[in-house]
Amino acid sequence: MKSMKRRTNTRPPVVAILSAVVLAAVGVCAVGRELVAPHALDQDVYLGVVGAGIEGHLFGTDQLGRDILQLSLAGARSALAGPIVVALGSMVIGFLLGTFAGYRGGIVDMLVGRYADLLLALPSVLLAIVVAGLVGRGYWITVAVLIVLFSPSDVRLVRGAVMEQTPRPYIESARLLGIRPMRIMFRHIAPNIVPIVVANLLLNVAFALVALSSLSYLGLGVPPGAPDWGRQLADGRALLGDNPLAAVVPGVLIILTATVVNLLGDWLSETLDRKVTAR
C-alpha cells in the first residue's frame, strides 16, 4: 500500500531514468560526432535522393546523396551545444540582474523591469528571426541573439524568487547582524533559489533547442550543408514524396530530445521542490 501511495504522488523515476538515458545518447553523439557518424557529410553522388532500405543507407539519403542516419546522428551536436550555451548564458544574465533587482529594489529594479517588459512584448522567435536575419547569419551569432532574448524571462524568474526570500526572517536577521549585502545575496539567498534556477535551466535548454532549430529551418542558423536537424527538416520538406524519412527522422529527434529534456526538468523541479519544502 505504501508503494502505491508513493506512485500516485511522484512520477516514477523510470521516466526520469529513461529520459536521462536518451539524453545521454544524444550527448554521446554530440561529443563524439566524428566517431559516431564519420560519413555524415559524404555525398553519394551516384545515388542522389533515395528512399529507405537501400543497402548502406538504412533511412535512405537526401538530395545531395548524404546518409540520413549519419547526418541525423551528427546533427546532435548543434542540437545540444547551442541550446546549452543559450540556457547557461541567459541564466547568468538573469541570475545577476534578477538578484540585484530583487534584493535592491528601487531604480535598479525599475530599469531591469522595463528592459524585461520591452523584450517580452515581442515573440522571441520573431525577434530572433529579425535580428539574426539582419545582423548576420551564423550559428554562434544566433546563439548570442537567443541569450539576449531568453534573459528577460530568467530575470523575472530570479527576481521573483529573490523577492520572495528577501522579507523572510532569516534574511532580515542577516541584515541586522550587519552581514554585507553581497554576501546576503550570494551566500544566503542564492543557494535557496538554486532549485528553481536549475529546473528552469533544463526547460530553457528545450526551448532553445526548438528556437535554434526553428531558425535553422528558416535558413538563419547553421550555414547550408551543415548537419543540423532544423536544416534537415527544411531540406526534407521538398523530399516528402521521394524520401519522407529525410524529414521524419530529424523531426522525431527534435521532438524526442526536447521532450526528454522537458521531462527531466519537470522531474528535477518536483524533486528539488519537495526537498526544499520538507521540514
Binding site: 523572510r168 526572517p169 532569516y170 532580515e172 536577521s173 542577516a174 541586522l176 547582524l177 550587519g178 544566503h188 543557494p191 535557496n192 526544499v276 521540514r279
Partner: peptide
C-alpha cells in the same frame, strides 16, 4: 547602532537559513 540590538522573529520555521 548595528548589532547592539537584535530581533527574534515570530515564525521559527523561516527564522533560519534552510541551507546552512
Amino acid at each position: 547602532g548595528p548589532r547592539r540590538v537584535q530581533y527574534v522573529f515570530q515564525d521559527p520555521y523561516s527564522a533560519l537559513n534552510p541551507g546552512l
